[in-house]
Design a protein around this nucleic acid. Structure first.
Lengths: 204, 204
DNA sequence: TTCTAAAATTGAGTCAATTCTGTTTTTATG
DNA sequence: CATAAAAACAGAATTGACTCAATTTTAGAA
């Protein structure tokens, strides 16, 4: 049950994603027609819909790869954070932000975010929510680590704090991708400035 | 230049919005066909597109009304805030949240938010961003007022703080509208819990 | 090898948003 | 009152995502 058929399946998945990624970049998400993706991937339109429920799910697969790489990179910081609360947060969030435009253009992010709110119960909508949660958990893990190292007061609600930090960063990131002319350096500076307030409250 | 034509224009605008609001509620945003809205408003499809650039802009007009009411209600709190930082924030954000589902269903909010990220430069996209900014400004105004009353330390960055509070609330609200079963009371409680961290830092 | 059921593929067809073009209504002017 | 220009309207045509019934391919049994 897992010879030729499975191989072909994996191969078609790959071809569809590669074709879509290229076309999304070149023509934009809206500009990339399913028909064109199908032609470039050498499958039919129907087959694409056999693999993905809708156009958004194709983009979703690309976004997932990106965010999973980011989560992976974040692990390192949590394991071995800078010995200063402000720097530790800045380093972790910096990884998220700097990595974000590696595979995805701002337009692709806008579409991905839009779809995840529009169709929260679609496969991609759920996956996107799970990714957000994973990022939040990683920030919480960092805070817990800092508490363990005695850098953050232990009497603070780490759960709520992690959510607060993530929510703020995420909202800032949304505004960032909405404006094509917005720069990464400014985004990071603004977030640092906001986090300074929190750091003042929670640092030992 | 402003007799019959202007009157008819205003009347058609009103009819389109009324028809759309009713249909969005009854059939959902996706379920409401432009053709049906046109029929109910007694105009043609072409006319609707003469008044609004796309379906999203019709929803946008409804969202704007809602948020403007909320901003208005918020004025009162800023002018005369509870004499306690936590309560003051909770009261203002509470108004935003409690009011939010008055005219708009969660599905309509999801669509509105999605469109505003998807098409940030469309009329609605820009209007939505402006509304977000207005809410942020109102929160900042409240913080400034509390600083004036000596309830919040004056050495805190009120600008960044207002943004932080808004961003967090907004993100929580987005998650709230994404889950149909989420309850307003829980949303408010979660936000209070997060703001408690900030209040601890900034209250005199 | 041959056969059959299950799985997968195909592409023409459907549906709804948006665009386009010709027609009608309104306004302003002589 | 005409009337020409401008503005607004109507609805048929276009477009592109998604569906579905018919066909093809694969896996495994005989």
């Amino acid at each position: 049950m897992s010879g030729l058929r499975a191989r072909q399946k994996a191969d078609r998945h790959r071809r569809i994603i590669e074709a879509a990624a290229e076309l999304f970049r070149d023509a934009g998400y809206e500009g990339a027609k399913i028909e064109t993706i199908a032609a470039q991937a050498e499958v039919s339109v129907g087959t694409i819909y056999n693999y993905y429920q809708n156009k958004g799910d194709i983009l979703g697969a690309i976004v997932s790869m990106e965010v999973n790489e980011v989560l992976n990179a974040g692990h390192g910081v949590v394991a071995n954070p800078p010995a200063n609360v402000g720097d530790a947060l800045d380093t972790l969030l910096g990884i998220y932000i700097e990595h974000s435009l590696h595979y995805l253009s701002k337009e692709m992010w806008r579409q991905a975010m839009a779809i995840s709110t529009q169709l929260p119960d679609s496969p991609f909508g759920q996956a996107y929510t799970a990714l957000d949660r994973a990022l939040t958990e990683q920030i919480r893990a960092l805070i817990a680590r800092l508490q363990g190292l005695g850098l953050v007061r232990r009497d603070f609600d780490g759960h709520a704090l992690g959510e607060l930090v993530f929510n703020n960063m995420n909202m800032m990131f949304i505004e960032f991708v909405k404006r094509d002319e917005a720069r990464i350096a400014e985004l990071r500076a603004a977030i640092r400035r906001q986090n300074r307030i929190l750091v003042a409250a929670i640092a030992v």
